[in-house]
Nucleic acid binder design. Sequence first.
DNA 1: CTGAAAGCGCTTACAG
DNA 2: CTGAAAGCGCTTACAG
Lengths: 352, 352
Amino acid sequence: MSRERSSRKSSNTRRRTRRTVKDRLGKPTIADVAAVAEVSVATVSYVINGRTNEVSPATADRVRDAVRELGYVRNLAAAALTGKKSRLIAVIVPEAGKRTEGSDINPFYGEFVFRFEQQARKYGYGLCVHGGTEEEYIQFLLERGVESAVLVGVPERAFPESLVRNDVHCVLYDSFDHNRVHSLVRTNEVKGGYLAAERLIDIGKKHIVFAGDVDPNRKNDVMAMRYEGAVKACEMAGLNPPRLFPLQTSYDDGLRAAEEIANSGADGVVVPADILAAGLIEGLQNLGRNVPAHLAVVGYDNLQMSRFVRPRLTTIDQGLQEKVEALMQIIHNRNVGDIRIIDPRIVVRESA
Amino acid sequence: MSRERSSRKSSNTRRRTRRTVKDRLGKPTIADVAAVAEVSVATVSYVINGRTNEVSPATADRVRDAVRELGYVRNLAAAALTGKKSRLIAVIVPEAGKRTEGSDINPFYGEFVFRFEQQARKYGYGLCVHGGTEEEYIQFLLERGVESAVLVGVPERAFPESLVRNDVHCVLYDSFDHNRVHSLVRTNEVKGGYLAAERLIDIGKKHIVFAGDVDPNRKNDVMAMRYEGAVKACEMAGLNPPRLFPLQTSYDDGLRAAEEIANSGADGVVVPADILAAGLIEGLQNLGRNVPAHLAVVGYDNLQMSRFVRPRLTTIDQGLQEKVEALMQIIHNRNVGDIRIIDPRIVVRESA
DNA sequence: CTGAAAGCGCTTACAG
DNA sequence: CTGAAAGCGCTTACAG
């Protein structure tokens, strides 16, 4: 049906760009669509990209019909090559496999990824995940032409200049950027820590400890801020600042630390991650301690899991949905350098 | 430093392909590398792709030095355009958001994605996730040039021909393919159901029910096979086949169904998903029933969560790591049509 | 062992 | 409103 027009082309052009539908085995291309619709590839490109003011309605319809007829789907990789954005977002969970003992990963990451995927899809982005080392993920971002990278829980440090230079928009999530150079979404961690300690104080606890790895040299990472909040709450209640138990964020670390914490004289503990809290509670119960009577625990994150643990976990809700939406806004509008800090709230269940 | 050679080129060639490092603002390209190394782009391409037998060692070294000097990272999208594979895998969880009540997703998906990501990375693949409708994910796969799609838990049905026609390798995961046309990785579900019911029988239970949505018209889906196994175990013990309670796989469905199951006269229940089991146990406890004394429950999946639930969940381990490795093999070797069925095992904890 | 050139599928000035 | 052509960054026969 498209013979007529194509036969008008010079044989040279024809050999180079012209193909009938049957010639092709794989996906139809824009040239196939153009042939069927009897227009140029430029015109097809215009209507595919919605630049319909460049094209007459009738032509646009012909093109759309051809698209449908051929089952044409555009090749985004080719489009990206021409300077269009790749519309690819990557969620980077640095060294995901090493985040916890064994191969169990903090369930937070799963909840995060699937929530965020819904947002990304809604805005027409594709979503990749990567759990490698810094070197690996930088290479990944660059070679895939990723537009925006969400870095989940990265420790503060000098940021790889190569990402900035290559124009990948980095958004830190639950991280801290001392130099305020990257976009950032996180919870008000100081407030979170405050709410957690405050709850313990409210139920009459006097000897509050903090089960997290706070590096005294890095005043401004997430753990340090949660701790700062807890300290503040204790101060306001005339209590000593919480003693620190430097644990990693894993179930097994909680399990192992139970005895030491139980014997420390503490009657309340702020645990800056639900998964850690689950392990700790398990360990305390193995020792015959009652939670919350003997030792009350407040978790952090309000994961699905916090409802499964017995006693049910009192925890800090970090406002995941709100954060994920903020993330998407910053990415979509490319508000480089924007910072969004979401207020947490406490969810009181049974453990405190 | 590369002036010498480039000045030998014709001015035409030079204008079209030659650039000094400084001319470029964005990523260096293969042409930049070629210029610095004073070779042609073809040579650069050869050494980047490890076709070193095409290039002398000395030349290869020069190229590698130039790559390092410029911080060159190849553009995989451009490479894919030339017929190379995209090395992109997508994990498709159809309508992830609708898989459970509200927006909580079965934690299984998170565990799966991060386990699989490690495999994919190890083999040099990028991993995307998609949780949309069939129409959405087909478009996604096609426009991104995804090489292989892992379809997690898709109901059996006629498969979209467009994916096959466009050469995306579909691997079904925990699904069933009646026509045996797609690659497939799953657990031996019949055995899983058998082990679950067997455990209940072993601890003396006589009235076993099954809390899953088994469609009598589709003999061969995952749920039906688990049920088949449970029936078999009951038969061998001289018991009646388990009564069916058609629940969806969500915490809330378990919670809601507790009363009906508790009043059904059952003393043991096979629950084909840990998340469902968690909800059910919660509901049973709210009713004052003791698990396992009054009603024993066996879950399915052996999620991390099964250790947090009280009583700790006895469950069927589906061999996630083994399955994820099998998946990777099938994808990497492109064994289209391969089927791998992994044996499950029972993990006995407290709930049965 | 090395290079020039065509081509992958697309977009975008630029002419008409 | 429409089309011819250059170019995005890469790979791969094909010549030398």
